[in-house]
Simulated assay, not measured.
Amino acid sequence: MSKKYQCKSETDSKPDSELLKIRAHHLCCIQGFQGYGYSPVFVANMRAVISDLEVLPSRLLKLVTVCDAICVSCPSKRECTIQESVLSRRIRQMDLVVLEKLRLDDGTVVKADEAFELINSTLNKSSDVEEVCGTCKWRQKCLWYAQAVE
């Protein structure tokens, strides 16, 4: 792992409340979001998260494989929090694939702009993107997915 992205030890003293928890695969979703979503509340929350990251690109993110700042407004959140559900396992697998490809651990803390730079430079083959996003119901409307598989 490149030292540039090995930020966890530098920020271990930061309380979790100062970190924005983001599922690893949401690094892709954030970039491809066009305003579609599960509900108006979900869409508004997604826009708020994206706006926050645009205003503060150096914001510290804690990359996770569980419900995050985006999931809090998802109508499927309850099913996702049940560790045994098919949906939960499928979504967590997307996170694990991203983390594996980025060579990061669950819980790694990294600046948002560095995380986006890393994901865009690492997941640069259509086969990588298919492996992460292949089962996503939003892939046909996702700008990140569309540009990545061209």
Rank of each mutant, 00 (worst) to 15 (best):
S2P: 10
K3G: 04
K4L: 10
Y5P: 07
Q6H: 13
K8M: 15
E10A: 11
T11L: 13
T11R: 12
D12Q: 15
P15I: 10
S17V: 13
K21I: 08
I22P: 02
A24R: 00
C28Q: 11
C29D: 08
I30K: 08
G32D: 08
F33I: 00
Q34R: 15
Y38N: 09
S39G: 03
F42P: 04
A44H: 11
M46E: 01
M46S: 05
M46P: 03
R47V: 09
A48E: 12
D52T: 15
D52E: 15
L53E: 01
L53W: 00
E54A: 15
S58V: 02
S58C: 11
K62W: 08
K62A: 07
L63E: 03
T65H: 06
T65P: 00
D68S: 07
I70C: 04
C71V: 02
C71R: 04
P75L: 07
S76P: 03
K77T: 08
C80G: 04
I82Y: 14
I82W: 11
Q83M: 13
S85Q: 03
V86C: 10
L87R: 12
S88F: 07
R90G: 11
R92C: 04
Q93Y: 10
D95F: 03
L99I: 02
E100W: 05
L102G: 01
R103T: 14
R103E: 15
D105Y: 14
D105M: 13
D105S: 15
D105C: 13
D106Y: 06
V109A: 00
V109H: 06
V110P: 01
K111I: 05
E117T: 12
E117N: 09
E117H: 06
I119R: 05
N120H: 12
N120S: 15
N120Q: 15
T122M: 04
K125P: 02
D128G: 00
D128S: 03
V129T: 05
V132E: 04
V132C: 08
C133W: 00
C133I: 00
C133N: 01
K137M: 14
W138Y: 10
R139W: 00
K141Y: 11
K141W: 08
L143S: 15
W144P: 03
V149Q: 11
